[in-house]
Structure formats: structure tokens, C-alpha cells
Simulated scan of single mutants.
Amino acid sequence: GLTAAAVSAVMICTQLAVLGAGSAVIVAVGRGEPPARVLDGAFAIVGLAGTALALGYLVLQSALAPDTSSESVLFWLTFLVAAVAGTVAIVLDQALVALGRGATATARYILGGGVSLAAAALVAWQAQGAYADVLMACWALGSITACAVGAVQLRRLVGYRPRPSFRSARGLPLLSLGIPNQLLTLTERLPGLVLPLLLAHMVAPEAAAYWYPAWMMAWAAYTAPMLMGIVQFSEGVREPSRLVSTTWASLRWSLAVGGLASVVLMLFAHPLLTLLGERYADSSAGALRWL
């Protein structure tokens, strides 16, 4: 439960720290700007913002909720790494969409998820249970893997080598493009991300633990429509004349894929959650169906 709350906190930090840089990269590359120059500015912005927000959260939690905060050096380090890697991964996703290679996300997240699962399985086998800092390290390892794969994909595609730069001529245009888009995104993302924190710190860590798998399974159904929306945005920047047809196509496919995934989750909510244990299935199947 505490790990679920920490993961949610990392995701809040990434959503705040990205500052719309991913959307700005789509717009800038779609308008014909050199990808390397745009990406250097974007990675510098999100790297600094991710570090600052993650540190800020950890200090704030230690001050306001010392009973649930962790003093483990491993936890602080993996929280910071996961926040920065997660923010960079968002920009990587949208940069590759802007370059017409959105499908590369499949390889990134299969490898990242596989590494996380393998690390967690190894911990479960060796330790028969683990503290929040060890579980957090397993999760962070997947984020690092996804970022590393994305960096390799970018290099192969456009020969990009990261050289983050804080020059105002690069950063300010990205922020002016990205922040309005990010404010719109946050109105939809933040409520779901705040809930596990409230459950863990105001109800009980067990409540957050039971909520988390239902939330993540529902998020999986939502991911495909979300990525289609990003592709639609990119296509709209590059070919504004086709915006109407692109929007209708995106809407149809989003409803088809997301709807099918939702039906599967509703029908098989209990068996899927039973993979984690009977207590998870009994506590969370109803929540998964509503989500």
C-alpha cells in the first residue's frame, strides 16, 4: 500500500514536471524545427523539473506525514530516479510520435514492464515479502529500462545524442507552447493520481494496496485511446486540413479498442485480480468494474 502511494506520487511529479514539453515537441517538430535542438531543450527542462519536484515531495512528506515517510536512502534515491525517468519517458513517447514512430512504445514498455516484473519476482522468491523501498526499486528499474530503450530508438531513427541545454532560446518557446496543453491534461490526470495518496495516508495503506491493481488495470484499457489522442494531435499539427477526418478516425478506434478492453475487464475482473490473490479479488473486483 505504501509503495502504491509512492508510485502515485511519482506519477504526480512526472505529470507536473513535464510542463507540456512533450506536446511542445510534437508542435515544434511538426512545424519543421530540427528534432535535436528541440529535444535538448525539452530534456533539460523536464530533468530539472522532475528532480526539483521529487525532492520537494519527499521533504514535504517528511515534514507533514513523518509516520508514513521513509528515511531509507534507497527509497529516496529510487523515488528521484523514477520521477526523472518517468518524466523523460513521457517526452520520449511524444517525440517518437512526432517523428512518426509511435508504435515503438510497445517495445519500450514490454521491456520495461518485463524488467520490473522479473525484479519483483526475484524479490518475492528470495525474501518472501519486501519493504517499500525494495519494491520501489523494482518499479524504478522498469522506468530506467524504458528510457534507455527510447534513447536507443531515437538514436537509430534520427541519430540523436542527448545534449541537454538550458538556453532560453530553446526552453522558453517550449514552455509557452506546452504549459497550456499541460494544464488541460492535469485536470483529467491529477484526481486519479491523488486518490492512492489519500487512501494510504488518511484511510490505511491496505486500502491503497487493494485500490492500486484495479486502477492500473483500468489504466491499461485507457492507454490505447490516450496514445491515439497523442497521434491525432501530432497529425493535426502536421496536416491541419485533415483534422476533422483524423479526429473521427481517432474517436472510432478509441471507442473500439478502449471499449473492447473495458468489456474484457468487466467480465473477467475477479479472475484477473485473483492472480494477485483472493483478497485482492474480493476487495477490488467491484471497483475495477466501475472504473
Rank of each mutant, 00 (worst) to 15 (best):
T3I: 01
A9S: 08
M11I: 07
Q15I: 01
Q15D: 13
Q15H: 08
V18Y: 03
V18I: 07
G20Q: 00
G30K: 01
P35R: 15
A44D: 04
V46N: 05
V46P: 07
G47F: 04
G47L: 05
T51L: 12
L53F: 15
L53I: 15
A54P: 03
G56I: 07
Y57P: 06
L60A: 14
S62R: 13
S69H: 01
S69N: 04
S70N: 08
S70E: 09
E71P: 03
S72M: 09
V73N: 09
L74N: 03
F75T: 06
F75E: 08
W76T: 09
W76L: 14
A83G: 11
V84T: 14
V91N: 03
D93P: 10
Q94E: 06
A95Q: 04
A95H: 01
L96W: 00
L96V: 02
L99T: 07
R101Y: 08
G102S: 12
A103G: 13
T106N: 10
G112C: 08
A118M: 11
L122A: 15
V123Y: 03
A124M: 12
L135D: 01
M136A: 00
C138W: 02
W139Y: 15
G142V: 02
S143F: 11
T145I: 02
C147Q: 01
G150P: 03
V152M: 13
L154S: 05
R155V: 01
R155T: 06
R155G: 07
R155Y: 09
Y160S: 05
R161C: 04
P162S: 07
R167F: 01
R170F: 06
G171W: 12
G178E: 03
P180S: 10
T185D: 07
T185W: 07
L186F: 08
T187A: 15
E188C: 06
L190E: 11
P191K: 13
G192T: 11
V194R: 12
L195V: 15
A200D: 00
H201S: 04
V203L: 14
A204H: 14
E206A: 15
A208W: 00
A209S: 14
A209E: 13
A214R: 11
A214S: 11
A214V: 03
W215P: 00
A220D: 09
Y222H: 10
A224I: 15
M228T: 11
V231R: 02
V231F: 00
Q232Y: 03
E235M: 06
G236C: 08
P240E: 05
S245H: 05
S245T: 11
T246L: 06
A249W: 02
A249I: 01
A256M: 13
A261P: 00
V263C: 08
L265T: 13
L267W: 09
L267F: 07
L272D: 05
L273E: 14
A285K: 10
A287E: 13
L288Y: 04
L288D: 05
R289K: 15
